[in-house]
Simulated scan of single mutants.
Amino acid sequence: MQHVGGQTREQYVEVAPGVRLWTQRRGPAGAPALLLVMGAQASGIGWPEPLVEALAEHHHVIRYDHRDTGRSSHPFDEDPYRVTDLAQDIVAVLDGLGVDRAHLVGLSLGGMLTQLVLADHPERVLSATLLGTCALSETPYVRPDGTSVPVAELPGIAPEVLELWARPVEDHGLEAELDRRVEHWRVLAGGRIPFDADHFRELERRIIEHAGTYAVSTAHGRADDCGMLRTAELARNEVPALVVSAPAEPVFPPPHPQHLAQVIAGARLVEVPGMGHALPPAVLGPLAEAILGHTVGRRAA
């Protein structure tokens, strides 16, 4: 299969005994690697094709399915793991594909996993781009007026998102499941950009086709999330870091992006107008431009 960014290659990588992850690579093999890290319970197919194509014009783009998503192993019920193990999977994917260093782009939980790799394995990271996530730091947020806000007092998840997440997921067939997922995206999108239900329905059809099932896993929500703070490590970061601010973000609303840019040493902040916790067509151009503006020209030493 040929794409604008070059040939697409699929490969499984073993990241732990009996655990293998599906990976896909696109773009010139000699270009700097860029690894896309999705959020909780999200398959790598969730990264929109136009964004992957735009990035693959300049990078060897890698996306993958986390454990318990898509075509990767689903081991949690028999062998529970920690959230930090999902971060180690990033390093294992790079190892398995023979990649020494890569640009990392992480969304939501993927942004937290990217911070963990940034803190624990900076020698593997060319740059980091963080979307729709919160800081793994105890350092207070400093407002523009100089006053500080403890991390615990930063805004929480929007009530409509929490209400949606609290609803039990029941099997009423494929079309009903697609309806549920589209409604989920509508709430996550934040409401500042006209919502394209057809786009997200087609996206979820591709995700389901890729996985071969529309069953929903809750593994990542049940995984042990202890030991994730990296306050000191992020404060002494030396890797180029970009934080994308999404003004319509309902999961980690502003000033979470501003806080994140403060606690990661040297981080830059850029806003994508109208963006929420979703990737609709309207934000893909500005988002690709922001990412490429951060990554193009950065090469491994």
Rank of each mutant, 00 (worst) to 15 (best):
E10I: 07
Y12M: 14
A16T: 07
W22Y: 13
Q24Y: 04
R26V: 07
A29T: 02
A31C: 07
P32G: 01
L34D: 00
L35S: 02
L36E: 01
G39H: 13
Q41D: 03
A42C: 13
A42Y: 06
A42K: 05
A42W: 04
I45Y: 15
W47S: 06
E49T: 14
P50Q: 11
E57V: 09
H59S: 14
R63G: 00
R63W: 13
D68C: 06
T69V: 04
G70I: 03
S72I: 04
S73N: 11
P75D: 09
D77Y: 02
E78M: 06
D79V: 11
D79M: 05
T84A: 15
T84C: 13
Q88E: 14
D89A: 08
I90C: 11
V93P: 01
G98S: 06
R101S: 06
R101H: 07
A102R: 11
G106N: 03
G111D: 04
M112V: 09
T114E: 03
V117T: 10
E123A: 14
V125R: 02
T129W: 06
T129L: 03
L130T: 11
L131N: 12
L131V: 11
L131F: 11
G132H: 11
S137M: 12
T139Q: 15
P140Y: 09
V142T: 15
R143L: 11
R143C: 14
